[in-house]
Design a protein around this nucleic acid. Structure first.
Lengths: 251, 251
DNA sequence: CGTCTGTTTGATAGCGCTCAAAGGGGGTGG
DNA sequence: CCACCCCCTTTGAGCGCTATCAAACAGACG
């Protein structure tokens, strides 16, 4: 059963309310199983901890912009970050979304190749890029795990190419809803109703559509009784998952 | 100067006609500087050599199909491979192209997530996946370099998202020609006229367009004197690179 | 020289965009 | 607590870009 256009990550086995045993943030981390640091052991975490700082971002704030010097890299410990690119005339393409456990900001080029914006309140670990790279030298298994995560990102992005290049509007929206639902389940959150953190405009920029087309398409799905729209606009209930999957393109 | 939608790889410094000094294929390899094995030293190459086999593919043959068991991974030493995905009804999206020096076939999932077809005659090194993974354990720098290459692939794919999601047909074709040109230069081959190995249909499936639209768009570019079409159909001369770059989206 | 395949050109239609306006929800100030 | 405002979303009308359908054209090969 191929999932709906996103690659499963290691799943949170339980709510796992890890007690803050030590004073170090890492010791109290609740998302480590999801993150790149899952491969490190106690002492090694201390080392990681020593080069890390924690901070928060409010909904709507930007973490970095396309073109900035890529001096810092990040680990999300809570919330959702939206990555996007711009054309000179302002047309925007949303590249993807990153959730807790995801890693962010490492690039081969001289600048970040996309912008990152918090679409919910977000909690992050922050590293100087050079510091993290030296840690990589010490613990190759970190880089090995990061490679695995990057391959997942690539697989997801590749699936999005198929969506943008070849799917109709209704197929795009159907795929999107299924992906959101699966991602929530993977984080151990309810997968139905689907929580749509981003606005219609962002959804459009993610799916290569306009706000209006997204809205119209959701209405069409509602009239077909495939979904129902909650009263918050951020809540969409999947009524007929099979039909939604058919529409999404055969999965 | 941001390149036209593809990430530069380490460049071939010279034609580098490496003499076949030993009997091992790796010792005679002419593309090692481009490839993941560039980080290995002499003795280590022997180790790599011991788990590798060389073979060739003719133009049009498939290396593997989406859904196959991903038991083998590959290194391209010559020619070009096209990666693509299919929807159940046959709509196709070309994911990208891989050239000599590129690495191919490693995935986290239980199957290859795209199909790979030789669009020229292709020379390859082939590894059993499990063998290569054990080599990775021995030489972490291999995995480190592979991560870097994967990040480049991700950056390129991300750029393609912008193209498919937000660019007009003429912008897509312009971007495509510039990318092809840059890629050829990177391989140490002539960048103008551009050699278009793939047919119009494949170009369409790469750019999210139909064959007809690709053809019409090339004609429009020709009438604007931005390009001229050679007599082989595979040869396109860039007459006005600046205008082409403008059309490609502001670069 | 004929056939086959891939490309170009042409005519038409449709999906999604653009422009425009109405609707709705949340926050703020009275 | 209500009224107003602002922003986001939804709905509507019309158009344009690209797809579709169809035919002419061209190059490769026998």
């Amino acid at each position: 059963m191929p999932p709906s256009g996103f690659t499963k990550k290691p799943q949170l086995q339980s709510p796992s309310p890890r007690e803050p045993s030590g004073s170090s943030p890492c010791a109290a981390c609740t998302v480590r199983e999801l993150a790149v640091c899952s491969v490190l052991e106690k002492g090694e975490l201390e080392r990681l901890n020593s080069i890390m700082t924690n901070f928060r971002l409010s909904k709507g704030e930007n973490l970095f912009y396309e073109g900035d010097d890529p001096n810092f890299v990040f680990n999300i410990t809570g919330g959702t970050v939206q990555l996007s690119k711009l054309l000179p005339d302002g047309r925007r393409q949303v590249i993807g979304y990153r959730d807790k456990g995801d890693f962010l900001g490492l690039t081969n080029s001289q600048t970040y190749n996309c912008s990152a914006e918090a679409i919910t309140d977000v909690k992050l670990c922050k590293f100087r890029r050079v510091d993290l790279e030296s840690i990589f030298m010490e613990y190759p298994k970190l880089e090995s795990h990061l490679l695995s995560m990057t391959r997942n990102n690539l697989a997801d992005t590749t699936e999005q190419l198929l969506l943008l290049g070849r799917k109709m509007a209704i197929e795009r929206v159907a795929s999107f809803l299924l992906t959101l639902s699966d991602r929530a389940a993977n984080r151990g959150e309810p997968d139905n109703p689907v929580f749509v953190a981003m606005g219609r405009h962002s959804v459009g920029d993610y799916l290569g559509l306009t706000t209006e087309t997204v809205s119209r398409t959701l209405t069409r799905l509602k009239r077909r009784n495939v979904i129902s729209l909650g009263n918050t606009l951020q809540s969409i209930t999947i009524l007929d998952k099979d039909q939604l999957a058919d529409l999404a393109g055969g999965y």
